[in-house]
């Protein structure tokens, strides 16, 4: 998947757990909690959706790497590439 595809998938899952967010106005560096107002339950639902979509384990210790859409795209690309190599 290209970074553009990954970003689109991430935003789809994000707006599914937080339907009141407008996909068009979400910035790459918007922070999930402080800028977009996700609480811990919303964030866990987002992680669950990404786990389901990509089959990645996403341990809790990696949560900071999903803090913004830009960071998440980098993280997902890295994990998927690592998974493909394995």
């Amino acid at each position: 998947m290209t970074p553009t595809d990954l970003r689109a998938a991430f935003i789809t899952d994000l707006t599914a757990v937080a339907p009141d967010l407008d996909a068009a106005t979400i910035g790459d560096d918007d922070h999930m909690q402080t800028d977009l107002g996700l609480d811990s339950m919303d964030f866990l639902n987002l992680v669950s959706a990404l786990h389901k979509r990509f089959g990645l384990p996403i341990p809790e210790t990696d949560y900071p790497r999903l803090a913004t859409p830009a960071k998440a795209v980098t993280y997902l690309a890295e994990m998927l590439a690592a998974g493909n190599r394995a």
Partner: peptide, 17 residues
């Protein structure tokens, strides 16, 4: 909690809440 969640998929994890 961290030890428990480390062995669980995200949909089974517990929150401190």
């Amino acid at each position: 909690l961290a030890a428990l969640n480390a062995g669980r998929t995200p949909d089974q994890r517990l929150l401190m809440g």
